[in-house]
Computed example of a mutant assay.
Amino acid sequence: MKKITLAVAAIFAIILTACSGSDGIDGVDGLDGVNITGSIYEVSGTFSDENNYELTFEFPNTVEVFESDVVLVYILWEQVDGTDGQPIDVWRLMPQTRLLDQGTLIYNYDHTFADARFFLESDFELGTLNTADTANQIFRVAILPAEAVNGKLDTGNINDVMGILDTKEENIIHVSL
């Protein structure tokens, strides 16, 4: 009797799982939303007396920055020769401090929900800086949803940040200020 009950239950289970229904009707396409997956922008500009030694990058309208999001800024610190003779970019998480003959220079940043501001701080007159310290500076701004960071990310390593966002060099959006 047990074998018959077990056989009937097995056949019944197979019949139930073999049933198929028809697909429902597709819904109407929605409006394009904002980017909540994270973004990386490469921003270049020159610090000068005219701009009070600060640059402001306004986030595009397609990106919405939330209070819980993480905004990181990296500065292109130098380029070194790779084994294949091609230059390799060295990125450093800001703020960064340089000790110069004039005194201490700090590359720093802050951000709001609408923009990121890069600025120079020093204990000396900024007008005495060499153009190498002010002209054509390159920054990378990474906007990360909080859930992407969750304590497992080495924010000091731009390659880890790009990896968590699944961003390749060719996908970085370039902006000149």
Rank of each mutant, 00 (worst) to 15 (best):
Y109F: 15
N171A: 13
V71N: 05
Y53M: 01
I158D: 02
Y107C: 09
T167H: 04
V80H: 05
D49E: 15
D84M: 08
E54H: 07
L177A: 06
A135P: 00
G163V: 00
E125Y: 14
L55M: 12
V8C: 03
V63H: 00
L31A: 12
T167R: 01
T128E: 15
R140Y: 12
V34K: 14
E64N: 14
K152D: 06
G127S: 15
H111D: 11
T128S: 15
T83E: 09
I172A: 08
I138E: 15
N171G: 06
G85H: 04
A116S: 14
D133A: 13
L144A: 12
T128G: 01
I106W: 04
G45R: 06
L16D: 00
V161S: 11
A9Q: 02
S176W: 01
E64C: 07
I164V: 15
V80F: 03
I143S: 04
P60I: 06
L120S: 04
G127P: 03
G45M: 13
Y107R: 06
L129D: 01
N35R: 11
G156I: 03
D133Q: 12
G85V: 04
A132M: 09
F139L: 10
E67M: 04
G163R: 02
A10Q: 04
S44A: 13
D23W: 07
S176P: 05
E54C: 02
Y41R: 05
L55H: 03
T134A: 07
D154T: 02
T167C: 06
D154W: 02
E125S: 10
E54S: 14
T167G: 02
I172L: 10
V175N: 07
D32H: 12
K152F: 09
V70W: 01
S22V: 13
